[in-house]
Design a protein around this nucleic acid. Structure first.
Lengths: 343, 343
DNA sequence: TTTCTTTACGCAATCGGTTGTATTTTATAA
DNA sequence: TTATAAAATACAACCGATTGCGTAAAGAAA
């Protein structure tokens, strides 16, 4: 196999006896180039198999038309849908997407942020690692006018774009739904307050829904988890079912937990939803397939991804440096399915 | 917010009264630079907040330390795990990963291949789009010594690296397992021969397993699908169950299909596995959670991703241009679970 | 002290587009 | 025909790191 060298605008320039600047401009329909020349250049470029080198363009313009995505992992349905949305929106505007997984490690996240900066990404979209408390490693982006958008797991006290759902309201709605179904002892699983507000907000919604409907808040019904795997859910459920007066409902902030709850209940002979109504969160594919299928709260992952990508792209286009860094709220919806439909 | 300009090696050179070449070499511990200077340079770089510009380095060296990944979609468990594996292996060698989704469109795949080439990716990992029959758009990589690795959905007649499982053997083993459980009328779902060998190979294994065990091949038990969604599976199953003598087993080449089959059977009052034993493929998370949980064939997605990434990285390191483009086979395993365990 | 090695570093070209500022060519007006 | 404006294209610097080659400085051998 021969070593073909890449075709450059110099090659085209030489062939046509034009300056490289003319080639460059002709290829992007610059008004100062005649139509005749533009046509000629494009035809020749095509013939010679010219493909622009984005590295060179990026170096010159100090931007790479690349969006860096920094997330805990891509194998979670919510996050892979998020990326999918980002990729679709990015591609529409001819941006590339670089993916990095922090695996919920703070240390990795710091390294990767540096690596993204090193790649001179045009913008960054991030969902924080579980471990992350300090976010100074993101300052390098803000300091250099690189748009930064946090999605879902967002930090507090950091002036930047955020794309989230209203977790408080979602938690409230989910809990209210269970109350409407007649549940009076509703359990809740939540996760440590580490990265701020996501699970706390859902919990706050849960608490307020209870009190708004005259139901007591029982600490024994709230279970704090470190991680939210299937097994964690099983353990938590076993704990709940062994209470003197076990719960008759559960608001789980994730579908996997909800699934584990439903299955644990079934194994114990507890009827779902009659004796134990369950609602999850995210609307993961599994929630629709499992039997009974799981009521859940939608989490518009792909939409959030698109929104985040478009914020990056629009911010760059607008050239406004001192823009209001707003929060974008996307809607959620309670999907009532078998696991909670009593009425 | 002030406009900070990026710190460059020129800035460091000026501060220390050294040449940029010295800075560049010092930062990578070049032997011709004294330890004293190296230490001084690194310290200053750190202080000044220097972050190397990979675009510049990439332009100069004509390589970007980037692996391009071109796949149908990332929201399938198999593919998101594949990417995860790629990302992990890439990161270990300090490579970045660019993701693009063809959404199974040939046209998109062609565009994206060009885009990846434009980004001067160091290597490409691809799983073909369903639609793709012609693969000349990948020649640009081979022609320019850019390592190209196909994974899972690989083309035939294209001399390049491939990372796959032995689909024939996997299909054979899965079918044999059902035979061992006493099934005699085993159904099979498959997909059109379009992109070559993947589903065909599994089907070939199925056919050979039947004949090796003296079972007749019934065309009515083989269902050809265009797409492999849950609903496709339901439809296919209904067709199978309405046969004069319906099947007593099913080898589905994907877990979603297997799940749909099990649930359709249950709804019809057909006992799984007693009257209808099912085995799927991929070992998707859902196969383990659904009840009864689904026997399946493992598809080592993450391993395949790591293997593919390492092929790219090693090929670059080795500088061998005329290397044998081998096929890498990864092992699969039959996981026997409730949906097929009769004995 | 002179010559020869090492050792340590600087010079300048290079990668391939992009873009501000000429400069040349063509068209229009005087 | 000449002056002037407009259109079309050329020149050259630039982005920031890399690297082959050249040179100065320091140490060793003569």
């Amino acid at each position: 196999m021969e070593e073909h060298r890449h075709v450059t605008i110099y090659d085209i320039a030489e062939r046509l006896n034009l300056a490289t600047s003319t080639i460059s401009r002709a290829l992007k329909d610059h008004h100062s180039i005649s139509d005749k020349t533009i046509k000629k250049v494009k035809k020749t470029a095509e013939e010679m198999g010219f493909v622009p080198n984005t590295l060179a363009a990026g170096l010159r313009g100090n931007k790479s038309r690349t969006i860096g995505v920094l997330i805990p992992t891509i194998t979670q349905p919510f996050l892979s849908s998020l990326i999918s949305g980002i990729e679709i929106a990015a591609r529409k505007s001819d941006y590339s997407v670089i993916i990095m997984q922090s695996h919920d490690s703070y240390e990795e996240e710091v390294k990767m942020a540096k690596s993204l900066y090193s790649s001179r990404v045009t913008g960054v979209i991030c969902s924080l690692a579980m471990e992350t408390k300090d976010t100074t490693h993101f300052q390098q982006f803000s300091n250099n006018n690189i748009p930064l958008v946090f999605v879902d797991r967002v930090p507090k006290g950091f002036n930047t774009f955020r794309v989230v759902i209203d977790n408080y309201t979602a938690g409230y709605k989910a809990t209210k739904h269970l109350i409407d179904q007649g549940c009076t002892r509703i359990a809740h699983m939540t996760a440590g307050a580490e990265f701020g507000n996501l699970y706390n907000e859902r919990k706050r919604g849960y608490i307020d829904a209870l009190s708004d409907h005259g139901l007591p808040l029982k600490e024994e019904l709230i279970i704090n988890l470190k991680t939210m795997t299937y097994d964690d859910g099983v353990k938590a459920c076993n704990r709940l079912f062994s209470l003197k007066t076990p719960p008759d409902g559960l608001f789980a902030p994730g579908d996997i937990l909800a699934v584990s709850a439903v299955q644990t209940a079934k194994k114990k002979g507890i009827k779902v939803p009659q004796d134990f109504a369950v609602i999850g969160f995210n609307n993961d594919p599994i929630s629709e397939i499992i039997e009974p299928n799981i009521s859940t709260v939608t989490h518009p992952a792909e939409k959030m991804g698109k929104a985040a990508a478009n914020i990056v792209i629009d911010t760059i286009k607008s050239h406004k440096e001192e823009e209001a860094k707003e929060i974008t709220f996307l809607n959620t919806e309670v999907l009532v399915r078998e696991s909670s439909r009593k009425v």
